[in-house]
């Protein structure tokens, strides 16, 4: 089976696979991506204007009415560990880490190497991963979700019946049914990032990539983006930013690699991303096999027991 999802789907001679490389090391948290996406796709404002208290993140998470979500993580200066740290509990929802109460008499604004890290404010624009193995696509009963010629995963809102199977299928919690008052565009059906399928068809970049002032969001051919991303990580390591790593760029990961992948400056959990996402339908063939085996075994057992009784 071809690794190019468009080819695997059956397109003949599709264009190069398109996706995003989101380099969070240059994100300035301006949220132009969130606004550009909403404007282009006519997405309603989410219900209510609520202060969430998650640093400057009042959007909360991706959902039916949020297709780009900027996370903000404030990391207080902390002592550098002398030994490797214990694995920490996975925190899946992004929250401000409440600092330990301590008397702060004077805060050094420079760090002595080996003593404390600098205060960090991580910012990152999250988006649908457009997985190579997309569980949402696998479970959709109506064929509303489909793989485009660009290798992206798109919902056809006029076909979607709002069954919601795709929602728990996504290992990242991206896709959701849109909520809102009656009459809201596409209310009740599954909604997520389309990688601006309509703009790609016109030779344009997705709205978020167009708007991003620092080119944190880079759009292009996934292969080329992956090699660009590797160079960027190498450059950051050369500059001493050892925390830099890619997320979703590995074709051997649990979703077969993501069409939209990231450069992070810490563990995925810090950003509210699952550390080891697996396409939730991965075990389905094995499960059916086991179920079938069990069923046949049961059937065989029943037959044997009947046969045994005769005679």
């Amino acid at each position: 089976m071809s690794s190019d999802p468009a080819v695997a789907t059956g397109y003949e001679d599709p264009p190069a696979r398109k996706g995003f490389f989101t380099d969070t090391s240059v994100c300035i948290g301006c949220k132009a991506c969130e606004v550009a996406c909403k404007e282009w796709n006519e997405i309603p404002a989410d219900d209510g204007f609520d202060l969430l208290g998650m640093s400057y993140d009042n959007t909360g998470a991706l959902g039916g009415s949020t297709w780009r979500h900027v996370a903000f993580i404030e990391q207080p200066a902390r002592p550098l560990p002398l030994v490797a740290p214990e694995p920490s509990v996975v925190e899946l929802s992004p929250r401000v880490v409440e600092p330990e109460p301590r008397v702060v008499e004077h805060v050094e604004t420079t760090t002595s190497p080996g003593e404390t890290t600098d205060f960090r404010w991580l910012m990152s624009s999250d988006v649908c991963k457009h997985c190579t193995h997309a569980a949402c696509l696998d479970v959709c009963p109506t064929g509303s979700l489909f793989r485009t010629e660009f290798g992206t995963v798109v919902v056809q809102p006029d076909i979607c019946n709002g069954c919601g199977y795709c929602v728990p299928a996504c290992p990242y919690g991206v896709i959701e049914r849109r909520t809102g008052p009656a009459g809201t565009k596409n209310v009740g059906v599954a909604q997520k990032c389309t990688l601006c399928y309509d703009r790609l068809g016109a030779g344009q970049r997705p709205a978020c990539a167009q708007a991003c002032p620092t080119e944190s969001i880079q759009f292009g051919d996934v292969d080329e983006l992956r090699s660009r991303a590797e160079e960027r990580v190498q450059r950051l390591h050369d500059d001493g930013v050892m925390d830099a790593r890619l997320y979703g760029a590995d074709p051997d990961d649990g979703v077969g690699g993501a069409g939209a992948f990231f450069l992070l400056l810490d563990e995925p959990e810090v950003y509210g991303l699952p550390p080891d996402p697996v396409v939730t339908t991965r075990d389905l063939p094995a499960m059916y096999k086991h179920a079938t085996t069990a069923a046949l075994t049961l059937l065989a057992g029943a037959v044997i027991s009947f046969v045994g009784r005769r005679g």
């Binding site: 969130e34 909403k38 204007f49 202060l51 400057y56 009042n58 959007t59 401000v96 409440e98 702060v104």
Partner: peptide, 26 residues
């Protein structure tokens, strides 16, 4: 679209000041 990004007037304080004046986050 802008209002939902920063929906409320807020005041930023350090944890030490919060403790001193009994201020709770949110």
């Amino acid at each position: 679209y802008l209002s939902e990004l920063q929906p409320e007037m807020f005041v930023e304080v350090s944890p030490a000041l919060a403790r001193e004046r009994g201020l709770e986050h949110m």
